[in-house]
């Protein structure tokens, strides 16, 4: 078995030009932790999701050193909302994760599961030749499919 066997085809996706506000709306509507981002040609460009939104909600300095605590900052919920509103109209292309490698459809199943386990997030599946987005493997649906098969 390969990654293809647990992949969901035609997943909801964002465009590079989609705004942060649109992305947040789609994430909530689809009840997803993240979504793949594609360019105008349908080629995979990156991932955008809760991690990026949390980063945008935090003070900028807080995200550049993951070893420092920021308990001294006294921001309120309103401050955090204001911070998000400041970037609501920015394209997701600016903040998406374009460095983490996507999955390939012929990746062995165990390797796919291991990648899910290590990355703790839903992962896109792309054609390695054309970089076209083929589908997505979500932690929830992959567990569901495997349980049904067992």
């Amino acid at each position: 078995m390969t990654c293809r066997s647990i992949m969901n085809v035609n997943p909801p996706k964002l465009l590079c030009s989609s705004t942060v506000a649109e992305a947040l709306g789609l994430l909530r509507w689809e009840n997803r932790m993240n979504l793949p981002v594609v360019d105008a040609k349908g080629q995979y460009a990156g991932l955008f999701g809760a991690h990026q939104i949390l980063m945008l909600a935090l003070p900028k300095g807080a995200c550049i050193d993951d070893k420092q605590g920021f308990a001294y900052v006294t921001d309120t919920q309103k401050d955090i909302t204001n911070r998000l509103q400041g970037v609501a109209h920015h394209p997701v292309e600016r903040y998406m994760d374009s460095e983490s490698p996507p999955l390939h459809p012929d990746m062995p199943l165990v390797e796919t599961m291991l990648t899910l386990y290590r990355r703790h997030e839903d992962l896109p599946v792309i054609d390695p030749e054309t970089r076209q987005l083929l589908g997505i493997v979500t932690i929830r649906s992959s567990l569901g499919k495997l349980m049904v098969q067992s």
């Binding site: 003070p59 300095g61 550049i64 050193d65």
Partner: peptide, 14 residues
Amino acid sequence: VLLIVPVTMVICEE
């Protein structure tokens, strides 16, 4: 600078 820059960024942002 690794220790000072993040605090600086937070102060400047505020």
